[in-house]
């Protein structure tokens, strides 16, 4: 189940983005490319709207942009690691380097929501977040997260 939501294909690295807006746009395009959403524009708007409600910037250079939107075809977790520091109005006022982007389709999907809540809880663990930030490759990231989620769901 965990592997179904975190596909190693959904992990990417970027070095061009410098602002939050560009980051959201990048995530939306990435989601479209991976066929997670029908429309990049609609997903971008959904993410943006969620950010306007309250920032998803978190601690330890991590942000979790997310939204529930009808354009989402399948629930997914995307990891984007940005080379440039991005201002995200985060809680510790530190720029963001890593985003856990969540795409949630409309309607009932308890299992995915449960998984997302597990991820959210995992991000509180500072050793975990530190190892994510330090991970250099997609494989390394994937393994770190898999291990953590499996441990957490026990």
């Amino acid at each position: 189940m965990v592997t179904s939501i975190l596909d190693i294909q959904h992990i990417t690295f970027d070095s061009s983005v410098t602002t939050k807006d560009e980051a959201l746009q990048f995530i939306a395009d990435f989601a479209k490319e991976k066929e997670i959403v029908k429309s990049a524009k609609a997903y971008y708007k959904g993410l943006k709207k969620r950010e306007q409600e309250v920032t998803t910037g978190f601690k330890s250079s991590i942000a979790i942009p997310h939204c529930k939107h009808k354009t989402v075809k399948k629930p997914a977790l995307m990891l984007v690691k940005f080379a440039n520091p991005i201002e995200w109005e985060s809680m510790d006022h530190q720029p963001v380097h890593m985003t856990f982007a969540l795409a949630i389709p409309e309607g009932e999907n308890q299992e995915h929501l449960t998984l997302l809540s597990t991820i959210s809880r995992a991000l509180i663990d500072e050793t975990f977040t530190k190892s994510i930030i330090e991970a250099a490759t997609a494989e390394e990231l994937h393994a770190t997260i898999q291990n953590k989620l499996l441990a957490q769901s026990d």
Partner: peptide
Amino acid sequence: SAGIAHTYM
């Protein structure tokens, strides 16, 4: 408000 992430964090 979304009930997805912050609630659990």
